Simulated scan of single mutants.
Amino acid sequence: MYTIVPFGEENKPKLPPQIGDVTLNELMKMKDVEVSIKDNTLKAKKITPTETLTLEVKLYPDGIEKTERIINRPYKKKELRATVVQFLREGKTQSEIAYILDMSQSYVSKLIKKAKEKGEI
Rank of each mutant, 00 (worst) to 15 (best):
M1P: 04
Y2N: 06
T3Q: 11
I4M: 08
P6M: 04
F7D: 02
E10Y: 09
N11L: 05
N11A: 05
K12W: 05
K12T: 06
K12H: 04
P13S: 04
P13V: 13
K14H: 12
P16D: 02
P16Y: 01
P17G: 04
P17T: 08
Q18G: 00
Q18H: 05
I19V: 13
G20H: 04
G20E: 00
D21S: 11
D21L: 11
T23G: 13
L24D: 05
L24G: 10
N25W: 07
M30R: 15
K31T: 11
D32Y: 11
D32F: 11
D32C: 13
D32Q: 10
D32H: 13
V33C: 10
V33L: 12
V35L: 11
I37W: 10
K38V: 10
D39S: 13
L42H: 09
A44C: 10
K45Q: 14
I47T: 15
P49C: 08
P49A: 09
L55I: 02
L55F: 15
L55E: 03
E56V: 14
V57S: 02
L59A: 14
Y60S: 06
D62A: 10
G63N: 02
G63A: 03
E65V: 09
T67F: 09
T67W: 06
R69L: 11
R69W: 04
R69V: 08
N72C: 01
R73V: 12
K77R: 13
K78W: 06
E79S: 13
E79H: 09
L80I: 07
R81D: 00
A82Q: 06
A82W: 03
T83S: 10
V84A: 05
V84R: 02
V85I: 12
V85D: 00
L88R: 12
L88G: 01
E90N: 12
E90M: 11
E90I: 00
G91S: 01
G91I: 01
G91Q: 02
G91D: 01
G91V: 01
T93V: 02
S95T: 05
E96Y: 04
I97A: 02
I97R: 02
A98R: 04
A98D: 00
Y99A: 00
Y99T: 02
I100A: 12
L101Q: 07
D102F: 06
D102V: 10
D102T: 08
S104R: 02
Q105S: 07
Q105A: 06
S106H: 08
S106E: 08
Y107H: 07
S109R: 09
S109W: 00
K110G: 01
L111Y: 03
K114I: 10
A115F: 04
K118L: 15
K118V: 00
E120P: 00
E120D: 11
I121S: 01
I121W: 08
